[in-house]
Design a protein around this nucleic acid. Structure first.
Lengths: 331, 331
DNA sequence: CTGAAAGCGCTTACAG
DNA sequence: CTGAAAGCGCTTACAG
């Protein structure tokens, strides 16, 4: 079996002629005489010794494992975030365990508990999220990252999504569009609520804009269908704000399928600025949120929390930036 | 600390009035009298007990953890595979730990050993891969999945990549193209070698085709640059076969950047058929390999190996399928 | 600085 | 069917 380690700290100790606890000390940076340390290090190197994580986390105060809860790994958004988190965690000698939507909330929680994660970065919160509450209820430190929950007792980090929505509306209005539509993200997601609010408020300020809303739920297929229906109505909108990039891709493709020219007949805007959006074939006008930075801050907040469990909660709001590309044009 | 479980099997045992070993038996399906089992189950449910994985894998024969070695998570290829693997593993009560290119080979190996993985699904093999050899060298069962290594002592599963290359060449030739280019994948990757071979052989059979090759290393940026250079030569090719879809996207975007019309001036073909390729905005002619099936078979081979360590090695080759879309046209 | 010992929470023979 | 005990490989006080 692969499981049982080929060599344990006891054997290292024997060969180095010291006690097992001494091996443990050189491994964990305890006080050891230079000569002893050198001798142990040699044997350690000889066998390329790797201490068993299972034993370590069974006895130690920490497992060194951080749970990361995401939704759909195939949304190009998440790989970017995960990679950024992995980098920060790895620099601290920590590992990451992924909980995706392949698991139910119950299964995800059970997993995080069985694994004994030190904390959780939660990226997929929705209003009254049962999983977020239950994780916290089990006393597992967590931070809300990317999507937040008002009043939730935890550190939180998100983009300035209200401004993102306002910037999108601003652009659409300045191009002269007045028949406007918005594809909403997932009900209950703070990003959807905030982007929607910013867009609506700014659109209302114009006075003469007509805003239609349809549901996309941050889902490609649902959006594709919804936008095809929208575009075949009597007087379709001339501009369409999608609350994230993936829905904007669906809209772009739906428009192509309907023979609606972008941006000549329809302007399309997204929100996120995933790398894909900069491709010439897509070239999506969107609002950039600092994806990697959000992920990094999420992890940093969690590590800070683990270091100082009683510090006051922090809530970071990161700036967004409008990115004009070629899917938008004057009405 | 989150780490220390709120309730352990000893406490469950006490409350149920049985020995701790009895709790273990109902947890693991040992023989227990119906009445006793019911009583224990009740207490288990009352606390929603979750046994510590650390303790379990420390003492048990298996950790229940499978390592999955991939390269770049941001290649849309991998999320699809990982999701498929997660599903199969989850159905067996197993978990997955990801090793990506955020880690060096040394770090990846150390991680897999410390974690005590029961086995590894290796998807990123290159010729003489040091990591694959070293994993095997440590006695950790592994299967080569998606990319293979001739003569490597392990179960292997891959697509019929030689045929994939042939099908691509066949299509290009039948459209009348004779000035042809191929963007090669990563040197040392079996997929690149096989797809290249199939394409070259079939192209050679035409007798009058001129084939140029450039390096893309399965990398978006490298391919983008290489294709821009290629398209600005005196007599650029009229058809371009990219050994995977990501490189084809780079080619499509590079062509757009150069003002080269696809498919009128340049036909572009990929290989993989990632979901993205079906988008109207991309609509890439490509050769489909059964992504999810490859992932599933990879996991199944590994589980089979764990069940029967001495079975003869299996080598599965899964069929591919040509998918004509709109990025190719007659010369 | 270093060793002997306890103990983390389980699974697995071993008795009965 | 069930309990008592050993032991997995470590970390962490506790002595010396």
């Amino acid at each position: 079996m692969a499981r049982r380690p080929a060599v344990t700290s006891v054997q290292i100790a024997r060969e180095a002629g010291v006690a097992q606890s001494t091996v443990s000390r050189v491994l964990n940076g305890g006080s050891v005489a230079p000569g002893t340390r050198r001798r142990v290090l040699e044997v350690l190197a000889k066998y390329d010794f790797q201490p068993s994580q299972a034993a370590r986390s069974l006895v130690g105060a920490r497992s060194g494992l951080i749970g990361v809860v995401i939704r759909d790994l195939t949304n190009p958004f998440y790989p970017v975030m995960i990679k950024a988190m992995e980098r920060v965690l790895h620099a601290q000698g920590l590992r990451l365990t992924l909980v995706t939507d392949v698991l139910t909330a119950d299964e995800g929680l059970a997993l995080l508990r069985r694994e004994g994660v030190d904390g959780v970065v939660f990226t997929s919160a929705v209003a009254d999220d049962p999983l977020a509450h239950r994780i916290a209820g089990h006393g597992i430190p967590l931070v809300l990252c990317h999507r937040t929950l008002a009043g939730f007792p935890a550190d939180q980090v998100e983009a300035d999504n209200v401004t993102a929505g306002r910037l999108a509306a601003e652009h659409v209005l300045s191009l002269g569009h007045r028949r406007i539509a918005m594809v909403r993200g997932l009900a209950g997601a703070s990003t959807a609520a905030q982007r929607g609010r910013g867009f609506r408020e700014r659109a209302a300020e114009a006075g003469d804009a007509v805003l239609t809303e349809v549901d996309g739920s941050y889902d490609y297929a649902a959006t594709y269908t919804a936008v095809r229906a929208l575009l075949s109505e009597h007087s379709p909108p001339t501009a369409l704000f999608c609350q994230n990039d993936v829905m904007a891709y669906a809209a772009l493709n739906a428009a192509a399928a309907c023979g609606v020219a972008v941006p000549r007949e329809l302007s399309v805007l997204g929100c996120d600025d995933v790398p894909l959006s900069a491709w010439e074939r897509i070239d999506l006008t969107t609002v950039r949120q600092p994806l990697e930075r959000i992920a990094e801050v999420g992890v940093e907040l969690l590590l800070g929390r683990l270091a100082e469990p009683d510090a006051p909660y922090r809530h970071e709001v990161l700036p967004v930036e409008f990115v004009e590309r070629s899917t938008t044009a004057p009405a």
